[in-house]
Design a protein around this nucleic acid. Structure first.
Lengths: 126, 126
DNA sequence: GCTTACCTTTACGCAAACGTAAACTTAGTA
DNA sequence: TACTAAGTTTACGTTTGCGTAAAGGTAAGC
């Protein structure tokens, strides 16, 4: 039906996301991702792929692998009824952190705008 | 006139920004900040304080100290006429990075919204 | 069955960003 | 002036996030 792949080798994902296989294995060591095995080889499915995307997103935002694992675990725990309160709390903390980052980014982008304007102005006046 | 402080000790700043003096000294080792000395003691002025804020902002965004130094140096070099092109290039790179982070944050915030809704829904239906 | 490409585990190495302890100096104050 | 709090340098230790061999196993094509 769809021609989207549903299975990936470790180097498939490594190439796609421009990281090394070593990194992907490291994320597995740290329990952030747990692919199936066909014999001894790792087989990644679309769910694993999404997880990897989440990991890289987290990294770009400066989260540690431990923090990213926490976030990922939140996703995985959707089913568990019990700890809803705890999950909501975790989400709140993470959201606050992201909102602070939003502020930081907006501040810096604005600073860059101002600085760039100054630079191009003095550049043209030469 | 104004009652804003214009001088700070290392522990003043450490307390204010909730970091250790060790960290601040480390930033100095890495040439990100260079306070004056009164004898052997470090004296920080408002300019140093702003620098420190920039450092922490950068850290929250996941930049390395080396990268933050690069950004800070951009700020400091406003006067230098020569390297305008280079500075504009650096700004461009940094801006692209920040814009990617903006996307990442918006994605995650949205995911949190969705997840939270699911959680509170299932929570109420019990 | 041999080659080649890709995969595996094990394990030591390394840079970044501080933590932490040691040993001392300096500045205010009682 | 002696105590105390805070500051200083020096230097080794620690954690995180992989890099990088080493030493080999596996799958596919010829």
């Amino acid at each position: 039906m769809s021609d989207e792949k549903t299975e990936y080798t470790i180097s498939d994902l490594a190439k796609e996301f421009e990281i090394t296989s070593r990194s992907i294995r490291h994320y597995e060591d740290e329990k952030l991702i747990t692919p199936l095995r066909r014999g001894v080889h790792r087989i990644y499915n679309t769910r694993d792929r999404v997880r990897l995307q989440l990991i890289l997103r987290g990294k770009r935002l400066g989260f540690s692998l431990a923090e990213i694992k926490e976030i990922i675990d939140i996703y995985g725990m959707e089913g568990e009824q019990k700890q809803t309160e705890r999950l909501l709390e975790l989400i709140k903390v993470r959201r606050d952190s992201l909102k602070q980052q939003l502020k930081d980014i907006k501040y810096l982008l604005n600073e860059f705008d101002v600085l760039e304007e100054k630079l191009t102005a003095s550049h043209q006046s030469e």
